[in-house]
């Protein structure tokens, strides 16, 4: 009986470590990146499954009268994972809130969001536009009443807040990347060694972040 339980929980915890680790990485990257990153729906659904599993295990524990200390340790583990997941989703929502118009205009950025986030971004933008429309734009003269453009003479959207992609980020390499070109002309080349810390412009290492070769911290 006890060996059964041990095996079960060992398997569960082994799986949880990796996924929690992955979630932690996704969360950290999301937190440090100026723009919104790809939504890892598979990871999130796996994490949610495991959270549910852990909740059920905990209920079993309380029913079977397992030692309180063990229960509270499990509870703590659960709480932390839940926080991670919530914080991850929250961070993304707040980024969407901040750059709603910019995200809604670009198909590339929209494709990074989950279905639910896309719906949220859309309604977010509509609500904001309605608010600006009724408080400011409807009172301005003809030609100056666009949300995204300053006036009719603007040929492109020039009033959409965008994330600053050339800000600096702290990052840690996971493996040797080798000589890496930071700018387009090849004047700045950095040798990225495994497990080393760097402060670089986000724009230049964007590709590495997306490919998962470098972690933001």
């Amino acid at each position: 009986m006890s060996s059964w339980e041990d095996e079960d929980s060992a398997a569960a915890s082994a799986a949880a470590t990796t996924d929690v680790e992955l979630l932690k990485r996704a969360w950290r990257n999301e937190k440090a990146a100026p723009e919104i990153l790809h939504f890892d729906s598979a990871l999130v659904s796996r994490a949610r499954e495991q959270i549910q599993l852990l909740e059920e295990t905990l209920d079993d524990f309380t029913d079977n009268g397992v030692d309180d200390l063990v229960v509270s340790l499990y509870q703590m583990d659960l709480d932390r994972t839940l926080f991670l997941l919530r914080s991850y989703l929250r961070l993304r929502l707040q980024k969407i809130e901040k750059y709603m118009a910019h995200i809604a205009n670009s198909d590339d950025l929209l494709s990074r969001l989950s279905q639910q986030e896309q719906r949220f971004a859309k309604s977010c933008k509509e609500i904001m536009e309605k608010h600006l429309e009724q408080s400011v734009l409807s009172k301005l003269p003809y030609g100056y009443d666009s949300v995204t453009r300053q006036s009719l003479s603007s040929t492109e959207d020039d009033m959409v807040p965008e994330p600053q992609l050339d800000t600096f980020v702290f990052c840690k390499t996971k493996s040797d990347v080798g000589a890496f070109q930071l700018d387009d002309i090849g004047e700045e080349v950095v040798d990225l060694v495994a497990d080393d810390l760097y402060v670089l412009r986000y724009k230049s290492i964007k590709g590495l972040v997306e490919a998962g070769r470098i972690d933001l911290i």
């Binding site: 509270s72 509870q75 703590m76 709480d79 997941l85 929502l93 719906r119 309604s123 977010c124």
Partner: peptide, 28 residues
């Protein structure tokens, strides 16, 4: 309206995002 939008996201995802604003240290 914005609260409603957040609420509908939360109910779609079936996870309450308005709790757990700070990392938990102790369950109690």
């Amino acid at each position: 309206s914005h609260s409603t939008a957040i609420k509908s996201y939360i109910s779609e995802m079936d996870i309450d995002l308005t709790v757990d604003m700070v990392p938990p240290k102790d369950p109690y």
